[in-house]
């Protein structure tokens, strides 16, 4: 992680993390219209813009809660870049759609690019991890859910009717299984390269 100074717009990140309606509302008032315009000008609809924006904010929320995201650039540019990137990915996915892209002329320094890139990769990894978690067998899913919700392995073992040692071992093997699923997916290698 870089040692750069935290931008004053960190308040938006903190506000999202605290689920502060006032802050969320102000993001919609101040920064969302620009994104909607961009998406509408680039083959998208208002509904699609709404989804992209919502997913982007959820990604930022997750990164903030999981990785203590620290904003080193203005929120405006960071948020816009993330939404833009996400939208371009959507377009690529459904490439049967006729794509017309207007490159925008917003100037952004490398710091913003870098941070937005980090967040995009984080978001895609989250999506991949969730997908792979759902591909696990039911026994593993139940065990892992219990493990991370209940915290105490003794209680987990008790609630599942197994011994402590068995629950412990099972936990590592289930995360191991998940590790293999993730490493085996082409998407992961793409993201990690």
């Amino acid at each position: 992680m870089s040692e750069k100074k935290i931008h004053k717009d960190q308040k938006y990140i903190d506000g999202l993390l605290q689920n502060n309606s006032f802050i969320i509302q102000s993001i919609y008032d101040k920064y969302v219209p620009k994104v909607v315009n961009y998406i509408k000008q680039n083959s998208g609809s208002a509904d699609e813009a709404q989804d992209v924006i919502q997913e982007t904010l959820i990604t930022i929320y997750n990164q903030a809660s999981q990785k203590k995201l620290q904003l080193t650039c203005p929120f405006d540019a960071y948020f816009f870049l993330l939404c833009k990137r996400k939208w371009l990915n959507e377009l690529k996915k459904s490439s049967n759609k006729e794509v017309t892209i207007n490159e925008e002329v917003l100037s952004k320094d490398d710091g913003t690019q870098e941070l937005a890139f980090e967040t995009s990769v984080f978001g895609e990894k989250q999506a991949l991890f969730s997908e792979m978690f759902n591909n696990l067998g039911k026994a593993c899913k139940d065990l892992l859910t219990a493990t991370f919700k209940i915290k105490s392995m003794e209680e987990v073992a008790k609630s599942l009717g197994v011994t402590y040692a068995y629950a412990r071992k099972k936990k590592s093997l289930c995360i191991g299984k998940l590790t293999e699923l993730v490493q085996g997916s082409p998407k992961f290698n793409q993201l990690n390269s």
């Binding site: 991370f148 919700k149 590790t179 490493q183």
Partner: peptide, 14 residues
């Protein structure tokens, strides 16, 4: 990868 997944699960489920 194992470590990353652990922290992902911890965050997601907790």
């Amino acid at each position: 990868t194992y470590k990353e997944l652990s922290s992902f699960l911890e965050n997601k489920l907790e």
